[in-house]
Simulated scan of single mutants.
Amino acid sequence: MPTPRTLLALPVSLAFLCLSTATSQAGPAPDTNALVRLLVTRGGAPAAALLAHDSTGLGITPAGADHERAATDYALGTTAYAHSGIGISRADHFRAGSITKTFIATVVLQLAAEHRLSLSDTVEQHLPGLVNGAGNDGRALTLRSLLTHTSGLYDFTADTGGTVPVSPTRAVRIAVTHPPADRGRFSYSNTNYVLLGLVIRQVTGDSYATEAERRIIAPLRLTGTSFPGSRTTLPSPHGRAYAADGSDVTDLDPRVAGAAGELVTTLADLDRFYSALLGGQLLPSRWLREMLDTRTAHGSYGMGLFPVKLPCGTTVWGHNGRISGSYVRTAATLDGRHVLTFRVNTSEIADPGLEPALLAAEFCPRTS
């Protein structure tokens, strides 16, 4: 569950390598396909897969429109798939880590749009007494500060290593044994989104998983996406997941991350979700603008999304996710019409320059 700072490495020089690719009319530039292979040969991943979708020029179905029409519009877009290495395939289910945060933020903003909560509400109003100790005070923290990672709350996974299953309340209690960082300064913390998961339950009476399934997963027909709770196995089909030392970590208790990183999904579902979100299908325009506003976090983060400005001047929006045995990245243009998701079946990419180079190769215009 990494910070956006991992995206700031400089691009590396690219090699043009031939790779088998299935396309419909058009797809990623050859550089993108080459980089998928480099994720294995240079990035140290056992295998890598990428699914890109580009519906530039097609209409985007507005919020509230028929979901079957939305699915049809999405299917009309040009797509391309690239894969390298052994052990994973296009249809696989995998753990998405912190990409879960975009789903949680979307649910919270939907509740705000329904006037069931306010982003200026304090944590204490919804979860009285929970955030208290070592200088932490839920009365001083707003839901906005949780969404934007400006609460200063300590990241509980720094103590658990992201490998120890804990309940949400236990995760928060671990965090509040540590003094907070400066409030108002961007400081990425998984504790923020664990708290938002608890707020969703307090406001709705249902778990964050139930609300996300009802509000996002079912309407968008994300048939490969789920919140597994305490289930340690992945749905079929799935490949294997490996730790940095090569050990098999495919089976994992998702309670190591909870609302900050529990999600299981597929390449196609993530492309569809981010395309729908940025295309205005999940939030009214006012609340989508709130989600994309990075001023609170001084340009580093919106709410469950962060921007990356590419060398060509294009800015893409999305999130990354790291959890034991899996690293995932989704990025999309502001209108959601061009979206890319790639994954590797290990926790780290050895060459940090590959990710920004891959995004530039996909989203920057080719020049002759």
Score class of each variant (00 low, 15 high):
151 S>F: 06
34 A>E: 01
30 P>L: 13
88 I>C: 04
83 H>T: 06
91 A>K: 15
115 H>S: 11
100 T>S: 09
268 A>F: 02
225 T>K: 09
70 A>G: 04
169 T>K: 15
73 D>R: 13
233 T>R: 14
210 T>V: 14
228 P>N: 00
214 R>T: 13
98 S>L: 07
278 L>D: 03
367 T>E: 09
24 S>Q: 07
167 S>M: 12
184 G>A: 08
135 G>W: 13
292 L>M: 04
130 L>M: 03
174 I>P: 00
285 S>M: 10
212 A>T: 11
46 P>R: 03
203 V>C: 05
205 G>A: 08
85 G>E: 05
170 R>F: 10
81 Y>P: 14
330 T>Y: 11
107 V>F: 03
312 C>S: 05
309 K>N: 01
25 Q>N: 08
90 R>C: 05
211 E>L: 09
301 Y>L: 07
259 A>V: 14
364 C>K: 07
350 A>Y: 01
118 S>T: 03
103 F>E: 01
338 H>M: 11
118 S>I: 12
160 T>K: 04
342 F>T: 01
192 N>M: 07
266 T>Y: 12
226 S>L: 14
236 S>P: 06
290 E>Y: 07
153 L>F: 05
159 D>A: 04
163 T>H: 08
335 D>F: 04
188 Y>T: 15
36 V>E: 01
356 P>C: 02
278 L>I: 09
183 R>G: 13
28 P>L: 10
246 G>T: 05
116 R>T: 02
202 Q>V: 02
130 L>I: 01
196 L>N: 03
81 Y>Q: 14
139 R>L: 15
252 L>P: 00
18 C>A: 08
134 A>Q: 09
274 Y>K: 07
126 H>Q: 14
78 T>N: 15
242 Y>K: 04
251 D>Y: 07
43 G>E: 04
142 T>H: 05
125 Q>L: 15
119 L>H: 12
160 T>L: 02
351 D>H: 10
287 W>F: 13
26 A>W: 11
22 A>C: 13
98 S>D: 09
320 N>M: 13
297 A>I: 09
250 T>M: 05
251 D>S: 10
275 S>N: 03
232 T>C: 02
298 H>T: 10
96 A>W: 02
145 S>A: 06
349 I>E: 00
20 S>K: 11
350 A>L: 09
204 T>D: 14
112 A>V: 13
136 N>C: 11
283 L>Y: 05
30 P>H: 04
355 E>G: 09
223 T>S: 05
145 S>F: 07
50 L>C: 00
18 C>T: 07
229 G>M: 12
